[in-house]
Nucleic acid binder design. Structure first.
Length: 766
DNA sequence: AGCTACGCTTTTTTT
DNA sequence: AAGCGTAGCT
């Protein structure tokens, strides 16, 4: 009896095939993570491979953490010396050590999308590009694609030939690279490109890593791009023990350079590669799987796979259509609440959508109905203004070379240093070939600053003071001091009192993240450093913060949902024009529609037990109302797999009456519309939406649902209670919340959980 | 010289 | 619905 007995035949084959190239085609839910973790365990335990020699590359930090944990519990020791990381963090680690060989300083900074855009704006000014004609975003995306294909600015210029536009872009590309270098900064793509560059020009470095990584595994291989492929090929070039896992049906990142060909070309690059297919799905019911299969079948040019399960038929897939997005959100919120009442946990549910903008309606409804939720994605935490401001201070203190960071904060909070002065400093810095910060420390040498000189002096003094402090005190102390000394909070209050509270909260969160980082370093016996923290912060994805232990409904885009699973999945906004998106329908590239279809496939296969599809006939998009038909993807699902609600007609036909009976709790919505321009109570009618726009703020502020709160509970702290799903437990605490009692219960089998009394339906026992 | 109010474009997805 | 750039104001 061994841990490998629990695997099925192909899984075991994949685990035992340790030497030489291996391609695992793993369908959704076919247990690929199990295979990878068992494979690592097998390498260590049975083949005596030193954990030190194993590299596993995952898509997100979260996945990396989970994999390490699971290997840990299988092997029990040594897993900490396995390299489990994302492509990007692996590259950062390598570059921190060796990038000086490429003429960069090892303490480079990493630019996020925002920084890139700011820099590109600069570039366009410099090389005289009209940003009306060539949008920064467009330039950046062209450059990004070039980088992903390992095309240098020089090559790009050659390829441009006589094409005026292309030549202009080439010019921008070259200047952009020069500026990055001048700022000692790398963008996301550079992390990969520079690493490949490093490995292909420095034989000793390559040798070093080839020796170290004798066994390499790559997860989500279908989403790798050309640079990543090159990188992996280089690393595995010597021992050729490369195992990649992927599913061509789940390739959804073409827009950022992912190349399905990497899967197909794998057998070309490694002709002796073994190919193993995992086709048994352990996650979903038959109905869900059949729906997924019948959708994906419409794609041409895919590797043939037949996913099957013996999980049983399961429930039908629910399809519900609504007149507008508000009703859709209301239904989902009500449905989740109903499920929780019947014993489900909030975190059994996930709401998935195509675009981040859709999250708002759900958020409002969930707040109003007191449903705990977590939105993944949207504006990245680290992209928020206040966070970027504070981080810019840290960057400036750490390394004055990052001109963008310095320019960002030189007048935040306001110090009376305006644009003209900033431009003069920059000009002078450019002329003298020094950094912005360096220039501003000697204002007398800059022509024209005259009166601002004293302000610059005091700004430089402030930064120097922080630098002194950063030597002496901890990161968190430094953060607090920066906030204190600059009066940042006060300036927020002056700016927009409306969301000051939220911003302060974010800053507090940043401080606790810094504290966590320091603790982490201490645990590992490393020295906590400012640059270490900045680096960690630069590479976190939103999904990394998702915590399965917490009981909340998760809301996110379909892209973010890849790799996750939930008992009950809601796919919202199943409308042509939204999903598949308008661009792909009208565009003439059938490949793009296929990518959307794969996205749909990913969404469907996230569901374990129950799948609910919803759509709205009209929807507010960027200010005005749009009318959409039911998504073509829904029509690709056989009708006998669908349950279309008690209104029989509807789903495929014309629209139903507005409102719906089974969830006619006219709650939040009517409260909101009463406040709006004289609309009648009750659910918003179809016509109403057409004639006027829905006053968003009124809805938000006026629609707080008054849930009937019981004034007394039948139990108190210390009592034994029973929950439908979690079983028996002891009440730890009862807190009087705004709308309901918040009860904390220590369940014998389900651990400590916080819940609202109204939904928990706890029964006192004994 | 710096700040503020108004009008104009915009994202589909992200490490 | 919100962020950015421009022009006009202090």
């Amino acid at each position: 009896m061994s841990i490998y007995d629990t695997l099925n035949e192909p899984q075991r084959e994949a685990v035992f095939h340790t030497d030489g190239p291996l391609l695992i085609l793993a369908g959704a839910g076919s247990g690929k993570t199990r295979v990878l973790t068992h494979r690592i365990a097998y390498l260590i335990e049975e083949r005596g491979v030193n954990p030190w020699n194993i590299l596993a590359i995952t898509f997100t930090n979260k996945a990396a953490g989970e994999m390490r944990q699971r290997v840990d519990s299988l092997v029990g020791f040594g897993s900490e010396s396995i390299w489990v990381s994302t492509f990007h963090s692996m590259c950062v680690r390598i570059l921190r050590r060796f990038i000086d060989r490429l003429g960069y300083e090892n303490r480079f900074t990493i630019y996020d999308t925002d920084d890139q855009k700011t820099l590109m704006k600069e570039v366009c000014r410099k090389v005289d590009i009209d940003t009306k004609q060539f949008k920064e975003r467009m330039l950046l995306s062209v450059i990004s694609s070039a980088k992903n294909e390992l095309i240098s600015p020089e090559e790009f210029e050659l390829n441009a030939g006589g094409d005026f536009g292309q030549k202009k872009i080439a010019r921008a590309y070259r200047e952009y690279e020069a500026q990055l270098k001048a700022n000692n900064a790398l963008d996301f793509d550079d992390l990969l490109v520079k690493t490949v560059h490093l490995l292909s020009t420095q034989p000793d470095v390559l040798e070093n890593y080839q020796e170290r990584f004798r066994y390499i595994m790559v997860d989500e291989y279908q989403d790798t791009n050309t640079v990543q492929f090159k990188l992996v090929s280089l690393l595995a070039g010597k021992y050729r023990n490369l195992c990649v896992v992927g599913d061509d049906d789940q390739s959804i990142y073409k827009f950022r350079g992912a190349n399905i060909r990497n899967i197909l070309d794998f057998e070309k690059e490694f002709p002796d590669a073994e190919v193993i297919k995992l086709e048994q799905n352990y996650r979903s019911t038959e109905n869900i799987l059949n729906a997924a299969n019948s959708v994906i079948r419409n794609n041409l040019g895919r590797k043939d796979k037949t996913l099957w399960t013996d999980n049983g038929e399961g429930e039908k897939i629910s399809l519900r259509q609504f007149d507008n997005g508000y009703e859709e959100a209301e239904f989902i919120a009500e449905d989740i609440r109903k499920g929780v009442r019947e014993g489900a946990a909030y975190n059994d549910n996930a709401v998935l959508y195509r675009t981040n903008a859709q999250s708002r309606l759900f958020e409002e409804k969930f707040v109003a109905m007191n449903i705990p939720y977590k939105i993944v994605g949207g504006v990245n935490f680290y992209a928020r203004r206040e966070i970027k401001d504070i981080l810019a201070y840290l960057k400036t203190v750490d390394n004055g070379q990052d001109d963008l960071a310095v320019r960002r904060i030189i007048n935040v909070p306001k110090r009376g240093i305006g644009l003209t002065t900033v431009n003069r400093i920059q000009e002078s810095a450019d002329m003298r070939g020094i950094s912005f910060y360096e220039a501003l420390t000697a204002p007398d040498l800059i022509p024209g600053v005259g009166r601002s000189a004293s302000k610059l002096d005091s700004f430089a003094a402030l930064i120097e003071y922080f630098r002194g402090q950063s030597e002496k005190e901890s990161l968190t102390d430094l953060l607090n001091e920066i906030i204190e000394q600059t009066g940042y909070i006060q300036s927020l209050e002056g700016d927009d009192p409306e969301d000051t509270a939220a911003r302060i909260q974010n800053i507090d969160e940043l401080i606790s993240k810094a504290a966590a980082y320091e603790e982490d370093c201490e645990d590992r016996g490393e020295q906590a450093s400012l640059s270490g923290f900045l680096e960690e912060v630069a590479l976190v994805a939103d999904i990394d913060s998702l915590d399965e232990e917490q009981d909340y409904v998760v809301l996110m885009t379909l892209h973010s949902a890849k790799g996750l699973e939930f008992p009950h999945v809601y796919l919202a906004g199943m409308e042509d024009g939204l999903f598949p998106s308008y661009m792909t329908i009208t565009g003439d590239d059938p490949e793009e529609l296929e990518e959307e279809r794969r996205l749909c496939y990913v969404g469907i296969t996230r569901a374990e037990k129950k799948l609910t599809l919803t759509s709205a006939r009209s929807r507010m998009i960027r200010g005005d109302v749009q009318y959409n038909k039911l998504s073509r993807f829904v029509k690709e699902i056989p009708r006998d797999l669908l349950d279309m609600g008690n209104s029989g007609r509807g789903a495929f036909g014309r629209r139903r009456d507005s409102g719906s009976s089974e969830f006619s709790d006219s709650s939040g919505f009517s409260a909101g519309s009463e406040k709006s321009a004289g609309s009648s109570a009750g659910s918003l009618s179809y016509n109403k939406l057409v004639s006027g726009r829905q006053p968003f703020s009124a809805l938000q502020k006026g629609s707080q649902l008054r849930a009937e709160k019981t004034d007394k509970l039948a139990y108190q702290a210390g009592d034994r209670v029973r929950h439908v799903k979690f079983g028996e437990g002891t009440v730890l605490e009862i807190r009087e919340g705004g709308r309901d009692f918040e009860v904390t219960v220590d369940f014998d089998n389900a651990g400590v959980r916080k819940m609202f009394a109204m939904f928990a339906k706890l029964v006192k026992i004994s």
